[in-house]
Amino acid sequence: MQNRQAYLAAAALLVGLALLGLWGERFLLYLAMRVMILAIFALGFDLLFGRTGLLSFGHGAFYAGGAYGTALCYLHLSKDPLLCLLAGLLLATALALIVGFFCVRHTEIYFAMLTLAFGMMIFSLVWNLREITGGDDGLVGISRQAINLGLAKLPLRKEGQFYFLVLSCFGLVLYAVHRIRSSPFGLILAGIRENHLRAEFAGANIKNYRLAAFVISGFLAGLAGGLGVLLESNAAPFAAHWSHSSEPVLVSLIGGLNTLAGPLVGSFVFIVLKEVVMRVTPYWMLWFGVVLLVILLGFRGGVVGTLAQALGRGAKEARS
């Protein structure tokens, strides 16, 4: 029953987004794409943070891996957008595999510090290897070429065209993360969060599970980064900085930890709030700080958790 409702809601969301793509105006589409890209980033991140209980401060580096992989492929190898995305995904996943291999040896604060250190290492490389990465200028001038399907060409140049690529990726990721969350593997991850010692004594090689969650989240960060480059037509070094790594943390927390809808709602709130607040005042961080405090002190379930709780209470009262 609940499952069916969730499927219906997801289908309605995707159809709604598709309709928006057909009739929405350019700026709206741009915003919607930013929400979806951030949601991809956050969906993967929450698999690691909300589900497995590992707080990373280095995932900006994998986002940047996807971004720079895509941009470098465009500038040096091929202008095919799918190939470029693939290159970005490869780079991000490889980085996540290497960094994750070391980081999953620790938990809690040491894990957070270790991911911070590795993330900043990657940032420093992006920042300093000017010949490759363009240093503080980043890599610019990446335009969206058409996807070559042999018989036909799918143009992406316009917002309204690229939108459907982003939407497809978003839909696929949403489905995949849902599958992972409801799989046996997903349950083990939750077990590791709840009590990693017990999980070990249940016979699970928890380092491997942690690493798998880490790599999946790194992969999705890379996908977000690659799409981000195609959307903005440049790759910027601050994507790798630790302050960018805090974005998916905030998003997961605002939306609600360890839920599928949380990262979606969180991304929506994050982007909309940022856009709205930025129109009124340049000090959007201040308001984010306030929102974060309110959530941490009063509504730790985030938007989704708080709503679910309120609905649950409402349903109980209605029954009694």
């Binding site: 409801s182 046996p184 997903g186 083990i188 077990g191 016979g203």
Partner: peptide, 16 residues
């Protein structure tokens, strides 16, 4: 959790 691990089904990450 331990049942899935013991049955070697815990690594299935895409099956419900």
């Amino acid at each position: 959790i331990p049942v899935l691990v013991a049955a070697k089904r815990a690594t299935r990450f895409f099956a419900p």
